[in-house]
Design a protein around this nucleic acid. Structure first.
Ligand SMILES: [Mn+2]
Ligand SMILES: [Mn+2]
Ligand SMILES: [Zn+2]
Ligand SMILES: [Zn+2]
Lengths: 144, 144
DNA sequence: TTACACTTTAGAATGATTATAAAGTAAGAC
DNA sequence: GTCTTACTTTATAATCATTCTAAAGTGTAA
């Protein structure tokens, strides 16, 4: 019931020790109703604003990558310099609001891809990433 | 007819001076039948292998960004640290071969997206990016 | 030929991310 | 509870992609 206990268990089951840094990060990432899309920088700012002690940048990277490896986070395909992570690890897609640089989930069943061309033999589909870039009406529109 | 002349004209029309560096880069990028997907690093290596004089990194970046701004190249949405560019500026999508880190075009009409959910009001679709990640059969498969 | 805006360039600066290696800590054994 | 050890955290340095700077070079129109 207690979320701290839940996180502790989850970490232990994964072979990760439930350190206070990891628990603080779990709380930030997973104790929320909605999907959370973030960069390391976003996360660092949230930690700083919280009353928790400082967490070093190295630990933020280590922890996020450890969680990714265990399947609790996934990386998002986006152009741009920084890496975005996603607490929603189910198959799904995204709106990317170019005005706000903000991601929103699109449920997998709310999009339907048809007519896939054949692919190189011996290769199998691992993942399909769809990003729908949106912006205010009054902006330059892609032609073609 | 002469491709050098074509590139010279194209550059001049765009308000870009046809310098020898730009023409050498045009030749590498645009004198080919197939779409070319590349990073600055790829391009640098090709220039180095060619018999052309060295082109500075700053010029490679400047030129590629100038061509992008003029609409002769576009950037590709991908996760990862480096920026990929594409000589195919038409609307289209990609296979990404995870074994080879290699992109292949999928024609826009060969893929069909249905059932788009409604999006935030006042916002308009600027672009849809679809990446189909493929790899050899014998690899970890995404579940869900 | 001249003048000048546009370009190229080496090198410094920035920003994200990763590596290093020393100090701190969780957890099982006793 | 104490010990032991492997796992973690951390400051800091290192790396890598990209951008900035400002000085030297070049295309072009007059
Ligand atoms: Mn990772
Ligand atoms: Mn650009
Ligand atoms: Zn998401
Ligand atoms: Zn392409």
């Amino acid at each position: 019931m207690n979320p701290i206990k839940q996180h502790t268990d989850k970490l232990r089951i994964s072979g990760l020790r439930p350190t206070k840094q990891r628990l603080a990060i779990c709380k930030i990432l997973f104790d929320r109703k909605e999907t959370f899309h973030f960069t390391i920088d976003t996360l660092k700012k949230i930690v700083e604003k919280s009353n928790f002690q400082k967490i070093s940048t190295a630990t933020l990277y280590n922890t996020v990558h450890a969680f990714e490896k265990k399947g609790y986070l996934k990386q998002i395909s986006l152009k741009g310099n920084k890496t975005y992570f996603d607490t929603n690890t189910k198959k799904h897609h995204h709106f990317f609001d170019e005005d706000l640089s903000q991601l929103t989930d699109i449920k997998n069943e709310n999009i339907c891809v048809k007519n896939l061309p054949q692919m190189p033999s011996g290769k199998k589909i691992k993942e399909i990433d769809i990003t729908i870039r949106i912006a205010n009406n009054n902006q330059k529109q892609k032609s073609n």
